[in-house]
């Protein structure tokens, strides 16, 4: 039943949103996860590495704005994160501009011990200014609404 509700939105990429990977945001994220790695916070050290700048931790792209799928409204509070997958093509460096978008890739229903559950499979991607895909993500969320 829920699948029918979400079906019209499957496959439509959101309009890409311009995001900047700010070094302060990267440091705050590293602080929040308690990761002292100097690559995420020490500019001078990071400059001496092949990256040439502070880079973001592997899950940092979750902080980006991926835009909205037109017309798709969800009560975020009712969502449970089931699975998360990242593919990395290029490092995210402080100062990078990324154009991020997402789509609802699939919706399926499963009978679980708590009754019928709806699974939403999202895909996200971030592109740099040269049009290269920097990262790709897949998120599987369980919708109980």
């Amino acid at each position: 039943m829920n699948r029918e509700k979400f079906k019209p939105f499957i496959g439509i990429w959101s309009t890409p949103v311009k995001n900047e990977a700010e070094k302060g945001a990267i440091r705050k994220f590293a602080d929040a996860i308690g990761d002292p790695n100097p690559l995420f916070r020490d500019e001078e050290y990071a400059k001496s590495t092949r990256f040439g700048a502070v880079i973001a931790p592997p899950t940092f792209s979750k902080t980006f704005d991926f835009g909205e799928i037109p017309g798709l409204e969800l009560d975020e509070e009712g969502l449970i994160h089931g699975e998360q997958y990242f593919e990395y093509n290029l490092p995210i460096r402080a100062g990078d501009t990324l154009y991020c978008s997402m789509r609802l890739a699939d919706v399926y229903e499963k009978e679980g011990k708590l009754g019928n559950m709806t699974f939403l499979l999202y895909e996200m991607r971030g592109m740099n200014e040269s049009g290269q895909i920097v990262f790709f993500e897949r998120s599987n969320v369980i919708y109980r609404g």
């Binding site: 996860i33 308690g34 790695n37 092949r50 931790p57 592997p58 994160h81 593919e87 990395y88 897949r138």
Partner: peptide, 24 residues
């Protein structure tokens, strides 16, 4: 992110993470 740290700790500045997927 904690598990991400486990990985980036071993990568240092020369290694690369290609793929990382989990189930909660």
């Amino acid at each position: 992110a904690f598990v991400g740290q486990l990985l980036t700790d071993l990568l240092g500045s020369e290694g690369e993470l290609h793929k990382f997927g989990v189930r909660f």
